[in-house]
């Protein structure tokens, strides 16, 4: 990596009471990179990416995003403005139409006018294949459609970085593909992506690098080929066996 990393974590520790969820994580993510985070349940994957946009505040170490320190209140606003997030449970705003869900942040956070924001939202929704649904409310959409709205909503802020926390885990199997397709297209646009997922096919195809976590630590990392085909750590081997055998 030659250029400065866009995400830089140094010795990050996060505790919930007595429990240590992140146990000294050090990590660099390069601009434009697609990083996939894998690991068993409870290993700290969600906590890791939620520390990047400070949905969780870390207890020790540094998190610096595009030069902004997230633990500094003023810099955090800048971080949030350029980091988008897509949630496992979508978290769409149920009282707003699909169009408004996508347009509201540019209006309320960036100060754009509604007309312009909605025009841009319409384009984004067309990009994820939802131009016909823009007047509906989230509850009227399928899970796959809702998650694509979630992606469009994050894109509306023109983020440099996109965080995905198991974006397809709440979906029926037949809808997983449509969401992964959108994500794969995004990965080619040069946006930096950090993706927590159990979709190993996606990880192999799209990731530039895989990060395997266990018990709050980064146990192994590397390009998908190396990690999947020649795993070194016994915990990673066990994890892959368990995941591939079902």
């Amino acid at each position: 990596m030659t250029a400065a990393p866009i995400i830089r974590m140094r010795g990050v520790v996060k505790r919930f009471g007595l429990f240590t969820a992140l146990d000294g994580v050090t990590l660099d993510v390069a601009e434009g990179e697609t990083l996939v985070v894998i690991g068993p349940s409870g290993s700290g994957k969600s906590t890791l990416i939620r520390c990047i946009n400070r949905l969780e505040s870390h207890d020790e170490g540094d998190v610096v995003v595009d030069g902004h320190t997230v633990s500094d209140k003023r810099q955090l606003a800048l971080v949030r403005a350029e980091v988008g997030m897509v949630f496992q449970s979508f978290n769409l705003f149920p009282h707003l139409t699909v169009l408004r869900n996508v347009a509201i942040a540019p209006v309320r956070v960036r100060g754009l006018g509604w007309a312009e924001a909605e025009a841009r939202a319409e384009k984004l929704l067309a990009r994820v294949g939802l131009q016909a649904q823009i007047r509906k409310f989230p509850a009227q959409l399928s899970g796959g459609q809702q998650q694509r709205v979630g992606i469009a909503r994050a894109l509306a802020m023109e983020p440099k970085i996109l965080l995905f926390d198991e974006p397809t885990s709440a979906l029926d199997p037949e809808m997983v593909g449509e969401v992964l397709d959108v994500m794969q297209t995004l990965a080619r646009t040069g946006v930096t992506m950090v993706v927590v997922t159990h979709e190993m096919g996606f990880a192999r195809r799209v990731a530039d690098r895989i990060l395997f976590m266990d018990a709050g630590r980064v146990v192994e990392e590397g390009p998908p080929k190396t990690l999947f085909d020649a795993p070194r750590d016994p915990r990673l081997r066990g994890f892959l066996q368990a995941i591939l055998s079902h």
Binding site: R80, S89, F93, R153
Partner: peptide, 18 residues
């Protein structure tokens, strides 16, 4: 109101008032 609603708003950069 579900916790995810607060998180989605914060992640999008909403200030406390908005």
């Amino acid at each position: 109101v579900a916790r995810g609603q607060f998180e989605a708003a914060r992640a999008l950069g909403f200030g406390a008032v908005r």
